[in-house]
């Protein structure tokens, strides 16, 4: 099937350019960075010295759910940035280099081309995210106390919806512009605008994709899934689908020069 052929090619490409190595590693690192540095902060401060004699260092240890949340907030910043950078040239780069013309001269369906690429990056994101959060869960249990693995998984799945949208946005911009730098820039700006708007108009934008992180924090604290998180997740997935459909249409109508 054509779709599998394209997916396989994308996976091979990302394997050969080491994305399957560095993206998971970076996700793991950013997930556990804060946990470890928070845990060892008193020791770090002590050994760095410079504090007057007799100072009492008393940093309250975060609860397990607070610890996991630190990972989510790191992923929300650096993780989004990495997803954008890793997929910023996936279509635009092929158009720019000219290989797109060869591919397009074959009876390739735009739908297969766009969704094959999307899915290959989605897989990479999912694997990286799960590995990162697993590492974070391990250290949380080791250093801060117990948190159910199932709770981590549920949170991860909801969070994956948000990252799915990020990739879909990058793919959409890929069909509009040729410069990977511009695509990354615009994608990040879009995510920032979405987040800021949600913060300002949070009372009316309860279903906003950017709210998912907030709902995850509630879930980790209380263990209950509110109806809002489902709303948010469904809206996020629908928006992702819209981005992908729009990307297919844009690519089909795009002039080649």
């Amino acid at each position: 099937m054509q779709w599998t052929v394209i997916l396989k090619k994308e996976l091979t490409e990302n394997w050969r350019n080491f994305k399957w190595l560095w993206v998971p590693i970076v996700f793991i690192l950013i997930s556990i960075m804060d946990l470890i540095s928070t845990y060892y902060m008193p020791i770090i401060i002590e050994s760095a010295g410079g504090l007057p004699e007799g100072t009492v260092i008393d940093i309250p240890m975060p609860s397990p759910s607070e610890a996991m949340l630190m990972s989510f907030s790191q992923l929300n910043m650096i993780g989004v940035l990495i997803l954008t950078v890793m997929s910023m040239g996936t279509i635009s780069g092929e158009i720019k280099s000219g290989v797109y013309e060869l591919i397009l001269a074959k009876p390739v369906k735009y739908t297969n081309y766009v969704t094959g690429k999307f899915f290959s990056y989605w897989l990479l994101m999912m694997v990286s995210l799960l590995l990162g959060l697993l590492a974070s869960w391990y250290y949380t249990n080791l250093l801060f106390g117990e948190l159910a693995l199932s709770q981590m998984f549920v949170a991860a799945l909801f969070y994956a919806c948000w990252l799915t949208l990020v990739i879909a946005i990058v793919i959409l911009y890929n069909t509009w512009f040729k410069s990977p730098g511009l695509i990354a820039f615009l994608s990040i700006i879009t995510v920032i605008i979405l987040t800021v708007m949600t913060n300002i108009f949070g009372h009316v934008l309860g279903w906003s994709p950017a709210k998912i992180t907030e709902y995850i924090s509630i879930y980790l604290h209380t263990g209950d899934l509110d109806i809002e998180i489902w709303f948010s997740a469904i809206v996020t997935l629908l928006l992702s689908l819209a981005c992908i459909l729009f990307a297919i249409v844009s690519l089909r109508n795009r002039a080649i020069d």
Binding site: Q2, V5, E13, R16, S97, G98, E101, L102, A105, K106
Partner: peptide, 28 residues
């Protein structure tokens, strides 16, 4: 239709054989 553009460009990380293989499978 088989088409060769004026400045054909390929995936530099593929081998020639792999590219033909890929193009063939894309064509069905």
């Amino acid at each position: 239709v088989g088409y060769l553009p004026q400045y054909p460009s390929f995936y530099p990380w593929m081998s020639g054989e792999e590219f033909l293989h890929y193009a063939g499978q894309l064509a069905g």
